[in-house]
């Protein structure tokens, strides 16, 4: 019975984080010249809070919901074509990224240094999948692809990682209290 309760809870939490990721694609916090979109922030946070297994489930369901045409991706759109579009690589990159973040955070027993390393690896994986895809689809040169698809977001990413560490620290007890 206890195991069942635990399962149900984790399932609901995973859906909640997937929904937060979906909303993160809509809400942007107006900070500085480039507003910060919270989508990949929530992806990283999913890995930290839920660990690799449930984190992977959350992201997989999120992507599947998008592929089925539910409006969960940026700009209020869904559809399987988003994977073929210019930003598809980033979306697919979320899967290995959340897995790695979860794994490193679990191995590090939630110590702060490991959290930071985990998120840096996660972001690197997202770009490693996203930038070559962007280059291929829009037929840009490598240099241009990096300038368009990575450089403008690096500062935002650093801010997100800096914010995610204390947030994960506050929220972990809520998730783990079972």
């Amino acid at each position: 019975m206890m195991a069942d309760t635990n399962q149900l809870r984790m399932m609901i939490y995973a859906s909640l984080l997937a929904a937060l990721t979906a909303v993160g694609a809509y809400i942007a916090i107006p900070i500085g010249p480039v507003p910060i979109v919270l989508q990949n922030f929530f992806i990283l946070l999913t890995g930290l809070l839920l660990g690799s297994r449930w984190g992977l489930a959350a992201v997989a369901v999120y992507l599947l919901a998008g592929a089925c045409g539910l409006p969960v991706f940026a700009g209020g759109s869904g559809g399987i074509v988003r994977f073929a579009g210019p930003t598809g690589g980033y979306l697919l990159g979320y899967l290995p990224a959340v897995c790695v973040v979860g794994l490193i955070a679990e191995k590090g027993r939630n110590r702060m240094v490991f959290d930071i390393i985990a998120m840096i690896c996660g972001s690197a994986i997202i770009y490693a999948c996203g930038v070559p895809w962007l280059k291929m689809i829009l037929s840009l040169s490598w240099g241009k692809a990096f300038v368009v698809g990575m450089v403008p977001f690096l500062i935002g990413d650093a801010l997100k990682i800096a914010a995610a560490v204390p947030i994960a620290k506050v929220l972990r007890p809520i998730v783990k209290k079972i």
Partner: peptide, 25 residues
């Protein structure tokens, strides 16, 4: 400070939605 703002935004938001999710469970 953008980090401060992000933390002060995300923590209450996520904490409250988690509480709602608990209630749903």
């Amino acid at each position: 400070n953008p980090v401060y703002r992000l933390i002060k935004f995300a923590v209450p938001l996520i904490r409250r939605t988690f509480e709602n999710a608990d209630r749903l469970a």
